[in-house]
Computed example of a mutant assay.
Amino acid sequence: MASATPILSATGITMEFRGFVAVKDVTLSIREGTVHALIGPNGAGKTTVFNMLTKFLTPTRGRIEFRGRDITALKPAEVARLGLVRSFQISAVFPHLTVLDNVRVALQRPSRLATQFWRSSDVLSRLDDRALELIDAVNLSPYAHLPAVELSYGRKRALEIATTLALDPTMLLLDEPMAGMGHEDIGRISDLIRRIAKGRTILMVEHNLHVVEDLCDRVTVLARGEILADGSYDEVSADPRVREAYMGTEHE
């Protein structure tokens, strides 16, 4: 259930690159238990904001808080341990390992077995029950023993989400999860995101506005490095400034 309490917030975050201001004074609040979208036209600053929130970039100015804790200066691995995890960041898929082995490898980190590749298969097999639960959660059970390289693109993305879920995140940040997908895969991943959102908070950068309309409780629109609008999908899509900047061509 959504809470009025923000789980992740940014206050006045600004990013300058050698005098060029890519993002200026962005303030946003992600409420716990919601699915929140960050959208905008190309060059709007979405990726820069996303990278600041996930700590791949440190803001030139401003403050970022997660669960009331200042994380502005922390590194990505440090915020991941707090439960703020960026999908496709830590969860690399190994193409020639099976789906099951990929998830087992991902589970080694929270199980404190990471880097212990000398461990016997008997020790690692203790992770199988949880790995199979995660594989089932992303609808990949029929493919558990298939090498990842043989999966379709959409199922590879589902596997990446499974390996991210292995870190047991409180909040999941998805960077364009539908990029490059066909209609069938988009529907499959949308259903997956809807399921995994139960009990979690999700922030996603997404270009597919039909997906945003379908999945997201709240939408923040960026343009030229600043927030243009913030609200429900209906509210922001009705804003003439938003339609002019980004959405009009898709909804005419």
Score class of each variant (00 low, 15 high):
N42I: 10
N42H: 14
A44S: 15
A44T: 10
G45R: 04
G45L: 01
G45H: 05
G45P: 06
G45F: 01
G45T: 07
K46M: 14
K46W: 13
K46A: 08
T47P: 06
T47H: 10
T47R: 04
T48I: 03
T48L: 06
T48Q: 02
V49E: 08
V49Q: 14
V49I: 13
F50H: 08
F50M: 14
F50G: 01
F50D: 09
N51Q: 03
N51F: 09
M52H: 03
M52L: 08
L53H: 08
L53F: 12
L53S: 02
K55G: 07
L57T: 05
L57E: 07
L57S: 12
T58E: 13
T58S: 14
P59M: 12
P59K: 03
T60E: 15
T60D: 04
T60C: 05
R61S: 13
R61P: 09
G62Y: 12
G62A: 10
G62C: 11
R63I: 11
I64R: 07
I64P: 01
I64N: 07
I64C: 09
I64V: 13
E65K: 08
E65V: 13
E65N: 11
F66N: 11
F66L: 05
F66S: 06
G68Q: 07
G68W: 08
R69P: 13
R69Y: 07
D70S: 08
D70G: 11
D70A: 01
I71G: 07
I71D: 10
T72N: 02
T72A: 11
T72E: 08
T72Q: 11
A73P: 04
A73E: 12
A73N: 05
L74P: 03
L74T: 10
L74D: 06
L74M: 15
K75R: 15
K75I: 01
K75E: 15
P76Q: 02
P76S: 09
A77V: 14
E78N: 09
V79F: 01
V79G: 03
R81V: 00
R81W: 00
R81E: 01
L82Q: 05
L82M: 15
G83W: 12
G83E: 09
G83V: 15
G83S: 12
G83D: 06
G83I: 11
L84Q: 04
V85Q: 00
R86H: 07
S87W: 01
S87T: 11
F88W: 15
F88A: 02
I90R: 14
I90Y: 04
I90L: 13
A92W: 04
A92S: 13
A92E: 09
A92L: 07
V93D: 00
V93W: 00
F94D: 00
F94R: 01
F94P: 00
F94V: 10
P95G: 12
P95H: 11
P95C: 07
